[in-house]
Design a protein around this nucleic acid. Structure first.
Length: 852
RNA sequence: GGCGGUGUAGCCCAACUGGCAGAGGCAGGGGACUUAAAAUCCUCACAGUCUGGGUUCGAAUCCCAGCACCGCUACCA
């Protein structure tokens, strides 16, 4: 093959991102290229990335998140959709307060300065946002509608103020929702161990929606399975029964008082050999007061209180318990069961009381062994029944020769009239025992959820004020709608750690109901309330008379593609689903689910660990933009790995991406020069041209398909192949003999395919180099023509007993029988004299011959 | 402990969901161009898919049993 290498190019216009990127960013903005409206007649698509917290400079995680969204948005536009692609800032929150304290500034100043910094970075990245819809949740024009929503929730009975043991972060000096206590019992934001405090707080009754939140996960096929699993686990639905145990008085006689427990295994009730109360249970004190048991019980209570304030250790914790000296009566057999206090019983799950069945429950088993309590087998595998059945033994065994509890299915023994029934989760015995209890009024089928109400009040300044007033005569009074917004005052001395509770001008007010003097609520709302509806505000961001116009939400919602980090699998994504269901019930949105499809992107790592300032292993996006330009960074972060997988940063790889962009640039510019004098008419072309044309169409198909499946890494590699194929063609066919029309088509196609990935470079190639009209980002996506991609001949491998013994090249239109004939003659020497048992033809791939 | 993910060339990653293990890139070797270097271009080698079984004409892909690493979760009755 003759190597027809160009000499020094005629034009020395090399790829220079620093010249073209700012130019097009300014141009797009002045043209209003990304400003969108509702009434275009094109189908809508809502592409959304989780909005950032304005923490300062952007990091690689942002780059990845927003680049993925930008490619989807841009390609969707080219494919004919009217695309809503907005951005904003989740701007309330504690870091602003902390930073302000440190720098003797104001949270607002810090926040808005950071927003400007990030905005500039996003512009430099070339993201196609409709800036006219940008918002910050700390803008009063935004948060006033959060207050309005709060009032609507209140009207609907979804707001509650109640006292209970709550999570308190001593570092953030505020309470936290359960979802915000992460990992090993630490604060989601500052990682400080959380302590329990009994406090009166504001809640949203998300538990009212527990069943719907669980059920509707099934309506989300476009969500990753693991996110749905995590949410289902968090909601934690358990089917079981409530069982009422009557408390025996101190004299041992029935007291008439009952304690109800929740159990998922009512079939094991006959094996209940002790009864447990959580240390925090309200009955504990009265049961032991003045008795010889008080001391030991108090020790357990004190230990538990200390435990929860100490960082919990990994793995199993040792169990502690003490007998109270009192008994309950087992409703199925009237037996007296001792009541113990145990620190493995949680006050905030179920009723805080547990029927302990050591033979069937791992924890109870351990506790029984530790304190020498009896273990009565009640569910045993059928084949071992005789060893434990009182009907055989003549007495009820009080001990088992087991190393662990048996919680699997089996047959009921030592259970009175239920003996012989199958036992286990959701078994016949499970139902029979519960029904029997129900008949006597001592129990009932019941469903229990792990999910608890969402604690939304925060004792912090930089948040959305809760629109409520405490009136000494009227009690809790909502701020009337026409008195909204409750404006967050700016004149606060944050360096002294002041909050609204230190601001009399704010909290001194009058009761809207009776006119008397009253105190305004000084807590602010959890920042997750702000992020629970921002995607709706984008639909109608400048509305100053409503949170949003339901018609506009009806047009854009639900979000077609949502993109963000897995860390919000429960937090933000659960809260947003909850609010959307409330809005749906209010008729404000068209669907009960906010996000139809969810893509959770992986982390960006360096040397195997996540980048973080504290580890000092951060690669700053701004530095990379400065060196290689935004386009190379965008393309590279997509090229390294599929979007949902973690990726390992490599500087060398970015070099390679920059080289590729340079090659693509050179290819298009050289073709532009070569075809500057006209292209002539497209000819049938020689073999080389045909090959290039096929390759071009194959790549169109591949890139289209890959973008649809979010396989941006392979989409980019396909574009590399197209560049390689075009260069091979130019190496093969001498200048003057080339098919100019085809080359021009390749250059145009490549530019269009590149456009969503490297928007600045593609725009410069389109308008500047190829001198085409309009913006490349308003062009139609290249049409894939399968027939143009199809080859006339295919090469097939011929296998004999699984080994490749030859190759044949056949016209694609040959039928299987003809292919087999050619294949057999190709491998005749391997088949000769042996019996052909089977021949398999895999179209376009291979022929497999099986011989005896 | 529970749930989930990943394991393919020195490295990052592909493989039409059962069909010849390699598309692309990085790093490496060789070459062209250059007085030289950089840049650029051409070219080459390298693994039999974590291990052990099984199903199949055929397994990276499906099944079973393990191993390793990484997430999330965890006394939820």
């Amino acid at each position: 093959m003759e190597s027809v290498r160009r000499a020094t190019p005629v034009s020395e216009k090399t790829y220079d991102p620093h010249a073209i990127e700012p130019k097009w960013q300014a141009s797009w903005e002045s043209e209003g290229l990304y400003h969108i409206t509702e009434d275009t007649g094109r189908p809508k698509k809502y592409v959304l990335e989780m909005f950032p917290y304005p923490s300062g400079d952007i990091h690689m995680g942002h780059v990845r998140n927003y680049t993925i969204g930008d490619v989807i948005a841009r390609q969707s536009t080219m494919r004919g959709f009217e695309v809503l692609h907005p951005i904003g800032w989740d701007a309330f929150g504690l870091p602003a307060e902390n930073a302000a304290i440190k720098s003797d500034s104001h949270p607002a100043k810090w926040t808005y300065a950071n927003i400007e910094t990030q905005k500039a970075s996003f512009r430099r990245m070339g993201f196609s946002y409709d800036w006219d819809r940008a918002l910050a949740t700390c803008d009063v024009e935004y948060y006033r509608w959060g207050q309005w929503i709060f009032l609507k929730m209140w009207e609907r009975g979804l707001v509650e103020r109640k006292s209970s043991a709550v999570n308190w972060c001593p570092s953030c000096m505020t309470v936290l929702a359960n979802e915000q206590v992460v990992g090993d019992g630490v604060c989601w934001r500052c990682k400080t161990p959380v302590v329990k405090r009994e406090l009166e707080q504001w809640y949203f009754k998300i538990t009212d929606y527990a069943q719907r939140l669980l059920d509707d996960l099934d309506t989300l096929p476009g969500w990753p399975e693991r996110v749905k699993t995590m949410q289902a686990n968090w909601i934690g639905r358990s089917e079981g029964a409530e069982v009422d145990f009557e408390l025996a008085g101190a004299d041992g006689e029935p007291s008439g008082e009952t304690i109800t427990v929740f159990t998922t295994r009512p079939d094991t009730l006959f094996g209940c050999t002790f009864f447990l109360l959580a240390p925090e249970h309200s009955l504990v004190k009265s049961l032991v007061e003045g008795t010889e048991y008080a001391g030991a019980v108090q020790e357990v209570v004190d230990l538990a209180a200390k435990e929860s304030s100490v960082e919990r250790s990994m793995g199993e914790r040792e169990k502690h318990g003490a007998f109270t000296g009192r008994y309950v009566v087992n409703p199925v057999n009237g037996e007296k069961v001792p009541i113990w206090v145990a620190d493995y019983v949680l006050m905030d799950y179920g009723t805080g009381a547990v029927m302990a069945v050591p033979s069937g429950d791992e924890r109870d088993f351990e506790f029984a062994r530790q304190y020498g309590l009896p273990i009565v087998p009640v569910i045993v595998p059928e084949e071992r029944r005789e060893r434990y059945d009182s009907a055989v033994l003549g007495h009820v065994p009080q001990e088992v020769d087991w190393d662990e509890a048996y919680s699997g299915p089996g047959v009921m023994v030592n259970s009175g009239k239920f003996d012989g029934l199958p036992g286990g989760k959701d078994s016949e015995g499970f139902r029979a025992v519960t029904e029997s209890l129900a008949e006597q009024g001592k129990g009932r089928f019941s469903v229990n959820f792990r999910l608890r109400d969402w604690l939304i009040s925060r004792q912090r300044y930089w948040g959305n004020p809760i629109p409520a007033i405490h009136c000494p005569t009227c009690g809790l009074v909502p701020v009337p709608e026409d008195q909204l917004p409750v404006v967050l005052p700016m004149d606060i001395d944050i360096t002294k750690g002041q909050t609204l509770a230190d601001h009399p001008e704010f909290y001194q007010t009058t009761c809207p109901r009776c006119g008397g003097s009253a105190r305004r609520e000084t807590d602010t709302m959890d920042t997750f309330t702000c992020s629970s509806w921002y995607y709706l505000r984008y639909c109608d961001a400048r509305n100053d008379s409503a949170s949003w116009d339901p018609d506009k939400a009806g047009y854009w919602m639900p979000v077609d593609q949502y993109i963000g980090g897995i860390e919000h699998a429960i937090l933000h994504l659960l809260y947003s689903r909850f609010w959307t269901k409330v809005f749906f019930d209010m008729g404000l949105v068209p669907s009960g689910e906010p996000f139809t499809n969810l893509l959770t992107q992986g982390m960006v790592k360096l040397d195997g660990s996540t980048m973080s300032k504290s580890k000092g292993n951060v690669v700053a996006p701004e530095d990379m933009i400065e060196r290689y330009g935004a386009d190379a960074l965008r393309a590279y972060i997509l090229f390294m790995a599929p979007p949902d997988k973690d990726l390992e940063w490599s500087y060398e790889g970015l070099d390679g991406m920059f080289r590729f962009l340079g090659r693509a640039w050179r290819l298009v510019t050289e073709i532009a020069e070569e075809t500057a004098g006209g292209c002539g008419v497209a000819a049938a072309g020689d073999a080389a041209a045909q090959k290039l044309r096929r390759e071009m169409h194959r790549v169109i198909g591949k890139v289209t398909d890959d973008v649809e499946r979010f396989q941006f890494n392979t989409a980019i590699s396909a574009m590399m192949e197209l560049v390689n194929a075009a260069n091979a063609y130019r190496g093969e066919v001498a200048q003057g003999a080339r098919d100019l029309a085809l080359m021009r088509e390749v250059a145009v196609t490549l530019t269009l395919l590149l456009a969503p990935f490297v928007p600045h470079m593609a725009e410069e190639l389109w308008r500047g180099v190829l001198t085409e009209d309009g913006s490349v980002h308003r062009q139609a996506w290249p049409e894939f023509d399968p027939s143009a991609a199809a080859a006339e001949e295919v090469e097939l491998a011929v296998q004999v007993n699984g080994k490749v013994r030859g190759r044949i090249t056949v016209p694609v239109e040959l039928d299987d029988e003809e292919v087999i004939e050619i294949a057999l003659s190709e491998v005749a020497s391997h088949v000769e004299g042996r019996e052909i048992k089977k021949v398999v033809v895999v179209g376009g791939r291979l022929v497999s011959v099986v011989v005896g």
